[in-house]
């Protein structure tokens, strides 16, 4: 009997590990649904330790990239270019907000409301790691619960929406990018007000699915967050329509080029804001 157990030791361990990992997955999915998906102490510690290490590991490559772009590629023009780009981004964002307010109601009152929507505290954060698997799209940020970051907070850059914080530890957090296949955002075509769902699709492109009837979507249209769904604030730029697909019986899809270049994410901002829906989803953390 003992011999048999010795011989089957590997097989038994294999079976036990398969069952345990499957059970963990089911448990994590349940936790995600019930809004209790915060990293445990040990897992949080692993994430916290990884942040400075990954920062240090990325530093040489960052420095090389910076050196190349700053001194070799665009000698002297780089600083000026950066300043102008930043200015353009600010003006574009401002313009977008004004246009959005004017289109939706035509009242200046709405502009004030819109601005107050966006005037939430923005926490600058650095992307210190990408996803360890090519199948998923997420980013490890160097800010966590200790800095006020909570699951369900939107992550943006000056160009537009990046994604959503999905897990936090005391000094780090993980954000699911818009381009992840699991991501889904309620979007709105700014020009025609056509509404639909934006999903991560392939590479770094997004898919915009909308109802055929009554929707007017054209190439070059800007898609912004609709504010519906209670996750993201209204009016954050998602992307630009690059291609409109064939219409089906009920639904039609368009391909979006994201406003944010996910391949060059460095500095992002966590909006220290959670929609009321997210407060219901993550009650134990308290709303902000």
């Amino acid at each position: 009997m003992r011999d048999l157990l010795d011989r089957l030791r590997g097989t038994i361990l294999f079976a036990v590990l398969v069952v345990v990992t499957l059970a963990t997955m089911v448990g994590d999915r349940r936790a995600e649904r019930s809004g209790e998906r915060e990293r445990t102490f040990v897992a949080g510690m692993v994430m916290d330790v990884a942040v400075p290490v990954q920062k240090a590991m990325a530093a040489p490559a960052d420095a090389a990239r910076e050196l190349w772009s700053r001194y070799l590629a665009l000698v002297g023009l780089r600083s000026e270019n950066d300043r102008l780009r930043q200015r353009i981004s600010t003006l574009e964002e401002e313009n977008l907000q004004y246009r959005e307010a004017l289109v939706s109601s035509g009242r200046l009152q709405r502009i004030a409301e819109m601005r107050s929507d966006f005037e939430v505290a923005m926490l600058p954060s650095e992307v210190v790691g990408g996803d360890t698997s090519a199948w998923f799209r997420s980013a490890l940020l160097d800010r966590g619960q200790g800095h006020g970051v909570r699951s369900g907070m939107p992550v943006v850059t000056d160009r537009g929406l990046v994604g959503l914080v999905t897990a936090t530890s005391p000094r780090a957090s993980q954000a699911m990018l818009l381009s992840d296949r699991q991501s889904s955002v309620d979007g709105l075509v700014q020009r025609s007000r056509a509404q639909g769902i934006v999903r991560g699709l392939r590479g770094d492109l997004l898919e915009f699915e909308f109802a055929v009837r009554g929707s007017d979507v054209r190439m070059g249209d800007v898609v912004i967050t609709s504010g519906l769904g209670g996750v993201y604030p209204k009016g954050v730029r998602i992307g630009v329509v690059e291609e409109v697909g064939e219409a089906g019986d009920l639904l039609q899809t368009a391909t979006l080029r994201p406003a944010v270049d996910f391949g060059r994410l460095e500095g992002v901002f966590v909006m220290l804001w959670r929609a009321p829906t997210m407060d219901l989803l993550y009650p134990e953390e308290g709303g902000s």
Binding site: T21, M25, E32, V46, M47, G129, S138, Q174, Q182
Partner: peptide
């Protein structure tokens, strides 16, 4: 550990690596 740094569910990488 890989699951902590990925968008995967906890246990997904562990299961597939096993």
């Amino acid at each position: 550990a890989a699951d902590l740094f990925s968008g995967a569910l906890l246990g997904q990488h562990a299961l597939l690596l096993v």
